[in-house]
Amino acid sequence: MSTIDDHFWHSYQHTQFLLTQGFSPALSFAIITAHNPRGRVLSAPQNRLLDSQLQRHIIELKRPYRAIIGASYDRRHMEKSWAVPIEKPLAVALGRQFNQNAIYFVEGDQLQLVPCLLNYPELTMGAFSARVCLVSELPEIQS
């Protein structure tokens, strides 16, 4: 595995999630983004276009979904994502379709980091609720 892959995998393990409303701990769902495919930072307009494409795919699944922001703890890096109650294999396939290195999956309030394009083992990261930050509204993503 490359050093850059190691960097991404490590940074994904230090993510918090900005929400406007909490989730039931009994709910299982995937957290998927289309931003910055393969870890390459794109412009805000490019990311918005990819995000709207991902949202269209999610709508076609006919499942409820909710916007969520994945952010570094210092909030210097944020990515709009979608929380969707779908099965893990479908979530990974969607992540691969949008060239994502990994997705998150939450089951019984346990947060899992699940590789899509990277060659790492799935990683359980503890309680999802411990990484949630409730906000009155989701911030605009600038990049």
Rank of each mutant, 00 (worst) to 15 (best):
Y12P: 05
M125I: 13
I4C: 01
R48W: 00
I31A: 03
K88S: 05
A34F: 07
W9Y: 05
L138E: 14
T33N: 03
F128L: 09
H35S: 10
S143G: 07
K62P: 00
W9H: 07
G126V: 10
H7M: 12
L50C: 01
L94R: 11
P139N: 11
R66F: 01
N47T: 04
P37C: 03
I69M: 07
H57D: 15
F105S: 04
S2E: 14
N101H: 09
L54I: 04
T3W: 05
V41Q: 07
A34R: 02
Q16H: 13
L90E: 15
Q46H: 08
F17D: 09
V135M: 11
T20R: 03
D5H: 15
L50P: 00
A127Q: 14
F23R: 04
V106A: 08
L18K: 10
K80I: 10
S52D: 09
I58F: 01
I86D: 01
A34L: 04
H57I: 00
L54K: 04
I32A: 04
G39E: 04
T33G: 06
I69W: 05
L138M: 13
I31M: 08
L123W: 03
Q13K: 15
S72D: 10
D6H: 14
V106Y: 04
K88H: 01
R48P: 00
H10I: 06
R131E: 10
L54P: 08
F23V: 05
I68F: 03
I86K: 01
P37T: 04
H7P: 00
H77L: 10
V106G: 04
Q21K: 12
R66Q: 15
D51N: 11
H14F: 07
A91Q: 09
Q112R: 12
P139W: 05
G70V: 05
F17T: 08
F23L: 06
Y120H: 14
F23H: 08
N36T: 04
G108C: 02
L18V: 11
A93W: 02
K88C: 10
I59H: 06
S24G: 03
E60Q: 14
Q97N: 06
G22A: 13
Q53Y: 08
E107K: 12
I32N: 06
V41A: 07
S24P: 05
D74V: 13
N101Y: 04
V92K: 10
F17G: 06
A102M: 10
L27G: 00
V92F: 03
V92G: 06
H7I: 15
R131Y: 07
E87P: 00
